[in-house]
Structure formats: structure tokens, C-alpha cells
């Protein structure tokens, strides 16, 4: 995935079944963002792979004061990239199981 300066990782091991997963997000390289986030920490939240949209969570982070509106797209993209990877991994392991 593209290096957005915002790191998103699983906050728990993915069991491959639950649609709701815990993610952790933090600013890894603030130079890639327009706002200054020197003192921000890691933000942990749950995300539903089936029903939720990454950009909505990014907007809620803006609303909550974690990010500036100007960076909402890059935060949304960072979440979207990680969510896509998680879904891809799940599909791959599902097709591997079916192939047996």
C-alpha cells in the first residue's frame, strides 16, 4: 500500500470470522500530512468490515479533533488500504481452505 504517513494496523489478531475488527491508527510521518500532530497517540477503534466505510471513520476522527479536515482523505485512504488488505487475506485463506 502507498505510504500515507498514517499507519493502520490490526489491534488484535484477525480470527478471519468476525466482521468487526479492532484497528489501531497513528501518525508515523507527519511530514506527509498538512496538519501538525506532534502529540497525538495511537487511536484504537473497531471497524465493521461488512457495513462500515473507512471515510466515515476518518470523518469521525476529524469531528473528534484527532485530525484536521484537510487530512480527512489521507486518513480515510490509510484505513481503506488496511481494510482492503485484511479482506484480501481473508478471501485468500478462504479459497485456500476450499481448495483442499
Amino acid at each position: 500500500a502507498e505510504d500515507t504517513g498514517v499507519r493502520v494496523e490490526l489491534a488484535e489478531e484477525d480470527d478471519g470470522n468476525k466482521s468487526s475488527i479492532a484497528l489501531r491508527l497513528w501518525v508515523e510521518d507527519q511530514k506527509k500530512l498538512k496538519g501538525k500532530y506532534k502529540d497525538s497517540g495511537a487511536i484504537e477503534f473497531t471497524f465493521d468490515l461488512d457495513t462500515e466505510v473507512p471515510e466515515t471513520v476518518a470523518q469521525e476522527m476529524v469531528d473528534s479533533g484527532f485530525f484536521l479536515e484537510t487530512d480527512v482523505k489521507i486518513v480515510g485512504k490509510s484505513i481503506r488500504d488496511r481494510v482492503s488488505l485484511i479482506k484480501w487475506r481473508r478471501q485468500r485463506s478462504a479459497s485456500a481452505s476450499n481448495g483442499k
Binding site: 495511537a42 484504537e44 477503534f45 473497531t46
Partner: peptide, 27 residues
């Protein structure tokens, strides 16, 4: 550890905690 809970009006819960030093990239 010092974690802070922030609840968005839509109901989502954000738990904020310090990023471990080991996870921060060299600037």
C-alpha cells in the same frame, strides 16, 4: 498506561494511548 476514551456522537469509541517508541519511525 495512560489511555483516553473519546466517544464520537455517532457512538464510535476511540481509545487513545501513547505510541510505543519502537513503532515510531525515525524522523
Amino acid at each position: 498506561s495512560s489511555a483516553t476514551l473519546v466517544v464520537h456522537s455517532a457512538g464510535r469509541r476511540f481509545i487513545v494511548s501513547p505510541v510505543p517508541e519502537s513503532r515510531l519511525r525515525e524522523q
